[in-house]
Design a protein around this nucleic acid. Structure first.
Lengths: 246, 246
DNA sequence: ATTCCAATTTATGTATACAGAAGACATTAA
DNA sequence: TTAATGTCTTCTGTATACATAAATTGGAAT
């Protein structure tokens, strides 16, 4: 399906000599497995409630249980899956409620970044933010805009000047990304998104922390516009695919 | 030292037959190792910056690398330790700046919880919050107050009603714990802390989200009162204890 | 003497083997 | 027919063995 899967598939064929050798800078078969499994969870290939059997997964990916275990443990640590006693791992149901809470939290983190940025951003950071914003101007292609949009947001985080906050927000962004994928990226949204960015940048440049925070909260949550859709789709997905919650 | 260590020690002596058999309901040697290692980190036995070598730990606890690895991976997932490429695991070193950023972030999370609690807490949650607050009344012993204080704050998180936020804040609390150790807990602080709690609870009960958030920000950051001390001591500590940053 | 290359050692990730406990299934007895 | 007990199979956790990549050290050459 994606490059990751094909790499892994390649690995199976080559009995992993290729994969093991391929390991560029970032080693970690388990890392790739983590992402692969996360991907499958998010796409619904492994639906909420489904069991994740170590042996099955190991066979499916053509690896031993060890890296699978590692990946599962890490997925468990970020609460994407849960371990039931003697029942193995299961995908934590991504309830609509949880998604809302997650995005609400994300919105607050971004608001925090915006507020800090308005108060403390250095000229250099503001310059980068502005540049990232300008790079979005006139972009029509949704995928391209999506990419540049992420860069803009990262620039915003960095303008907060709090390394710790930046790390945390980046991680949240990563965690939320799988679910964002479900969102329809309609072209009409691009214009309004860009307009909101514009306002946000202005507000930050004007050192209006409160307003910047509020605008960012709105901006992230406006995804709630299509959020209803997202939640609905997940709801259907859950209702349809769950075999038995048992 | 603690029961956990002694259990593990017992296990070493008995070549783990005892331990393996002891495994009441919650098996998991790795779980115990996780707690044991975290304990040692929190108490400062493994200070910030220290390396955690898999084989050393395995030998120290008399177990194989596997459960140690599992524990380390989990500690890494919650950012209590970090894995440096080819340098093994290490307890995240705490520069004064990073500590400030961390507590600032923590303060914002708590403020968030407080704000949400003021807006949405259920009567039951408020009741629990109030109970946790009352439990602190009149407590003189710093350690005991510290313990009850944590319970109060957890009750606050839970009153936010956002599961995701709760998880995140609890994780941050856990993450910050190793560094809190450095704080001097002076008895005089107890009274003012309690008074602040009192105000916070009142404000939340009055549904004043903005003010509750602000008071919590202050409350957590007042640790900044002794924060200067903390930072200073860490600064000295860093200067003195670090062998070579390499 | 300094630098570069090679070789040996160490560390880290993965595979596999093993053990113990829990659950399931079947058989027997009441 | 149902319940209980015993066995067998499966599953999960831990240990160990192995392979590879990186780092360090030593030697040689410039």
């Amino acid at each position: 399906m994606d490059t990751l899967s094909s790499i892994l598939y390649e690995g199976i064929i080559n009995n992993f000599s290729a994969l093991a050798a391929m390991d560029q800078p970032p080693n970690r078969l388990s890392e790739q497995l983590l992402e692969a499994i996360e991907e499958r969870i998010v796409t619904g290939e492994y639906p909420p409630g489904a069991r994740l059997d170590e042996v099955e997964l190991a066979e499916a990916f053509g690896v031993s249980r060890t890296p699978i275990r590692e990946a599962l443990i890490r997925l468990g640590s970020i609460h994407i899956i849960e371990k039931m006693p003697r029942r193995g791992w299961a995908i934590a149901p991504a309830s609509p409620r949880r998604l809302v809470e997650m995005f609400e939290f994300m919105a607050e983190l971004e608001a925090l970044c915006g507020g800090f940025a308005a108060r403390r951003a250095t000229p250099f950071q503001l310059q980068k933010l502005l540049a990232a914003h300008e790079a979005c101007r006139g972009v029509k292609d949704p995928d391209e805009y999506y990419r540049l949009n992420e860069i803009f947001h990262v620039a915003l985080y960095e303008a907060s000047g709090n390394e710790f906050l930046i790390e945390q927000t980046l991680e949240m962004q990563r965690r939320a990304r799988p679910y964002r994928r479900l969102q329809l990226r309609v072209p009409e949204r691009i214009a309004s998104s860009f307009a909101e960015h514009e306002e946000i940048v202005r507000t930050i440049l004007a050192n209006n922390a409160e307003l910047a925070a509020e605008k960012l909260r709105q901006h992230v949550m406006v995804q709630g516009e299509r959020f209803a859709n997202l939640v609905k789709s997940v709801e259907k997905l859950s209702a349809a695919d769950v075999k038995r919650p048992a």
